[in-house]
Amino acid sequence: MLYYVFTLVFFLFDYFILAMGLNIQYGATGILNFAYIGFVAVGAYMTGVAGMPSNITGQHYILGLGLPFPLNTLFGGLSAMAMAVIVALITLRRLRTDYLAIVLISLSLVLYDFCNNFVPLFNGADGLYNVPAPLTKALGLNVNSFIVVFACVTGVVALILWFVMARVTNAPLGRSLRAIRDDSTVAGALGKDVFRMQLKSMLIGSFYAGIGGGLLIQFGGSFNPTAWLPGETFVVFAVLIVGGAGNNIGMFVGALLVETLLIHLPAFLPEIPGHPGLIEYIDSALVGIVLMVMLWTRPQGIVPERVRRAVTFGVPDRPEIDARELGSAEVLGAPVAAATEGAK
């Protein structure tokens, strides 16, 4: 029982991290990163090989640095960032939205395909196994207590990363990213180096992807290429849209509803005899349907993006100006009610 509960807790916090990473790329900056899971996979793989010793027989992999936790995970995060630099240089500068989406989703599939086939580097379809479980020796953990401890460790990591992300998104940096999302031409005309800003956003988001991936591989102990198919990116998008694009707390809510309740809870249901995998298929289809319904009925998500009020910038409220300005209505026309423009 404890095992199941803490498995769910782990996935909650891990997907909270993953969704925050995608949120700064898509929710804040508007980069439709359909290759997100590829960055998670790179983080996972590099964390694995950074943590594993160099001499396990029967598996092909690179590095084998034997780094302890959390250095291996940090290495995974940095590797994902390195990939982001390459991807951004090739794609971001020159492609409009749908080309970018096509290239990224293709990239994601090709990464999978390449990993799955190229044995010398990635061990082919076997992936990695016997990835060391962190802290086990140091704390003398068994299989069950490892789940509990590692879920809590992931929770702490998620909180630290949330604190950092909140800082970034509330800072002028976050505002510049949102300006680029809303209209990159205007942002450029105001002196923002759009490409550099998008690159920053990609780097920060990829770091989160890499860390989330690194935690995943250590939790499960293995790296299986089929777990990183492009469809997995969609799950993170579902978390993001349901929770509320542009809101970090929303990412937690989305992870709770989509990843924990919708995806992992049904996994504990018994199989329907004669129909292997049926529950999983229907469940995956359900994720897609939930996302579409959500996008139609409440595109801003359960926890919408915050309105950052003037008072939060440390300036005093001056109601007397509000009063003085009343006469301006005849010049400006009546202020348009919030709803008239509709959702954009």
């Binding site: 439709l32 469809g231 298929y281």
Partner: peptide, 17 residues
């Protein structure tokens, strides 16, 4: 176009499953 792209991505997942 973001939204409709995400929707077709979602539709793909629904149909496949």
């Amino acid at each position: 176009t973001h939204y409709v792209l995400i929707v077709t991505f979602g539709l793909s997942l629904v149909m496949l499953n």
